[in-house]
Design a protein around this nucleic acid. Sequence first.
DNA 1: TCTTCGATGATGAGAATACGCATTGATTGT
DNA 2: ACAATCAATGCGTATTCTCATCATCGAAGA
Lengths: 223, 223
Amino acid sequence: MRILIIEDEVTLNKTLAEGLKEFGYQSDVVETLKDGEYYLDIRNYDLVLTDWMLPDGNAVDIIPDIKTKTPKTVIVVLSARDDNESEIEALRAGADDYIRKPFDFDVLVARLEARLRFGGSNIIEIDDLIINPEEEKIIYRDKEIELKGKPFEVLTHLARHRDQIVSKEQLLDAIWEEPELVTPNVIEVAINQIRQKMDKPLGITTIETVRRRGYRFCFPKEA
Amino acid sequence: MRILIIEDEVTLNKTLAEGLKEFGYQSDVVETLKDGEYYLDIRNYDLVLTDWMLPDGNAVDIIPDIKTKTPKTVIVVLSARDDNESEIEALRAGADDYIRKPFDFDVLVARLEARLRFGGSNIIEIDDLIINPEEEKIIYRDKEIELKGKPFEVLTHLARHRDQIVSKEQLLDAIWEEPELVTPNVIEVAINQIRQKMDKPLGITTIETVRRRGYRFCFPKEA
DNA sequence: TCTTCGATGATGAGAATACGCATTGATTGT
DNA sequence: ACAATCAATGCGTATTCTCATCATCGAAGA
């Protein structure tokens, strides 16, 4: 496993390289986008871990390039800023994950490994809506939506099966530990929560109900 | 779609019936060959899912019978044994598929469905008319038709048996949970709905009534 | 061939039912 | 005590069924 680290804070990139080595990853470190591109040309990387803002530009400038040349390379963006816009921008450009500084190193490794194992990203991105199951976080047009727990999981599951009818039973099976111990009514409650906290304040429709058959995530809504 | 399950392990046959229901199949469950034969006599099944060894005999004893009486009924045999001989025997007798226990439920469903829709997809596409049973959606010349619930199911069933006369009893058996509890008049009502909401606005004829015998889906209509 | 009549299907209206929604209060675990 | 989750409830609406009536078909007889 070979990782390219593009990061201009020297203390941080040393820590990263050393830390990752202990977990069995070989990594190369560069401090500018230019150097990064150079390395990407001469070597194949399984993963690129790059800062968002760099002295000679922005990570977004090279992400699409990487994704077209070597689509399998996983890209993870680090950002110092608590800035939703850049997260959206990064993901849209093709990044697979987005991690905010400061971060716990073990968490970072866990997420990198999850990405590597999985191949792609867990993050669901539809239109201006971003659902990040790992962080249990939803962002719509730069604003975070307060939706946690079961309702969040229901939304996530439905979003993953976009445009398909998902029955209540399927939702129970997928999300609840012991589906037989709860009534399907809990789904309705969860759906209600979603509509109260997402659809209503944002003036959008994410989930439509298909009588007798279940629910369907359809967003953005066709006319 | 109606399925007969012949299986003597109670936990298994419950799982099967419930699981299949979620996939949109109506199933009856019996635990012996004798009962199985009885049900086969009074009802039409699209598929028979039977255990190989049963308390009162072997599935091979009834397979040829089913295949002569109702050749279209698909027969799938389940066997607890890791036994090639019985598989050969079952297939030779006329079974359409053979699945070994233990099995993954999703695999089972996939195989059943593969058997049921002769290799193609579930979507019925005739001329400019598209019927999608999964999404409960009808499209004619790029326009969606509002037809849901029972009338939708009736239409679907008839379309699946294009050009064949389907009796009201067959429709009841195939679509209603307890056909004996409703009058056959409900079919007429459903047919009426279809004609009001599809044929009339679109200026087409999809279902013709064959007096005393049933209904026949014949579209597009030959001159 | 025409007419009549019984049987079968079509249709519309209203009743019965099933389903989903929203709210509430209880329960659980932190 | 607080937050999350769930069961229970009543309510409104969409669907489904029944029933009563009307139309149509087709066979039998004139």
